[in-house]
């Protein structure tokens, strides 16, 4: 048992974090959300790091590490709000040619719940992956029609509403669908965990600088306790996300489904609550479009719906505890 990152894993996280700081500044993140703002060359740079193929075997062009390593990478990406179809690209790498090096951009829709056919990052993608209970299907985005949402809730996650599901080529059976739902859920949870750390960092920096009543607002216990709670929620989220990642690699250690549903609950709570705290700590400025606090909150809202709702996750954990 060793549930702390190895030196190699810490170095991997550091590399992704440094790359994101350099090549995905918050200005770049914001620009990705604009009409036609998806920058394919920047996306290819991200892919060239091995980002999407971390856990893909080397003979398939990947880095050949474990799924936990992909989880750590997504946590780092989430902390910097790196935009684009990160989860879809990671799932499809090694399965669909060109995804791993960023030349083919995939988006994904998980069919199962009622409601409109909303797809994130559709307009910037080449292929659409459709997951349902029977399996995984592949379509060209050009073969689907839809209307772009004028005001996506997260300004850095463009959303399109499809008119209907296009005809697909079946690329995987129900086993692949189940595996992708599990892995997709956990990668989104990993980004949520990272998101929660990113908003906490932003809030703490502001609390140290901003002065009221003649001293930094971070010296007041009212804020200290809010921010300490944010840090704790992040550590809880990282703990369950990491444990779930290792459980995918070592299935004998516990229930994968319980670990993944639990990771969603702790990471979604951490991301949404910490981002709310971040807005609150920024005071009136936190209520402005200009300050980045809302970007964390809105991204968290997007991620927490991916591959299953919070209530579904809660019921999954309960049922898996009750039947163990």
């Amino acid at each position: 048992m060793d549930l702390q990152p190895t030196d190699d894993q810490a170095a991997l996280v550091e590399m992704i974090t440094a790359f994101a700081a350099d090549r995905f500044s918050i200005e770049t993140v914001r620009s990705f959300g604009e009409q036609g703002g998806f920058d394919r060359s920047r996306w290819a740079e991200l892919a060239a790091l091995g980002t999407f193929g971390i856990s893909v075997p080397e003979e398939q062009g990947g880095v050949g590490l474990h799924f936990i390593d992909a989880v750590l990478v997504h946590e780092a990406l989430g902390a910097s709000l790196v935009p684009g179809p990160l989860v879809a690209a990671t799932l499809a790498s090694g399965v669909i040619d060109g995804v791993i090096d960023g030349t083919v951009v995939p988006c994904i829709i998980n069919v199962g719940s009622e409601g409109p056919l909303l797809v994130e990052n559709f307009r910037s993608s080449d292929v659409l992956l459709i997951i349902d209970d029977q399996g995984v299907g592949l379509a060209r985005c050009d073969d689907a029609t839809g209307v772009d949402i004028g005001h996506p809730t997260d300004p850095t996650t463009p959303v399109t509403i499809l008119d209907s599901l296009p005809k697909t080529e079946r690329i995987g059976d129900s086993d692949l669908a189940r595996a992708w739902r599990r892995r997709g859920s956990l990668l989104a949870s990993a980004q949520l965990a990272g998101n929660s750390a990113g908003s906490t960092k932003l809030a703490v920096e502001y609390a140290k600088e901003r002065e009221q009543f003649g001293r930094p607002i971070g010296s007041f216990q009212g804020l200290k306790h809010l921010l300490a709670d944010s840090w704790i929620r992040t550590e809880m989220a990282r703990s369950s996300v990491w444990a779930a990642g290792v459980t995918i690699d070592e299935p004998e250690v516990g229930s994968i489904d319980r670990a993944i549903a639990g990771a969603r609950l702790t990471s979604a709570r951490a991301a949404t609550e910490n981002a709310k705290t971040c807005v609150q700590v920024h005071g009136g400025m936190g209520f402005t479009w200009e300050v980045d606090a809302h970007l964390f909150l809105k991204r968290a809202w997007v991620l927490e719906t991916q591959f299953g709702s919070i209530d579904d996750a809660a019921e999954d954990v309960a049922d898996l505890y009750a039947t163990r």
């Binding site: 809880m236 703990s239 954990v317 309960a318």
Partner: peptide
């Protein structure tokens, strides 16, 4: 049941 799930997730996280 949902509250049980949230607490169960917290225990697993702990």
């Amino acid at each position: 049941r949902r509250e049980v799930g949230i607490i169960g997730a917290d225990l697993d996280a702990l």
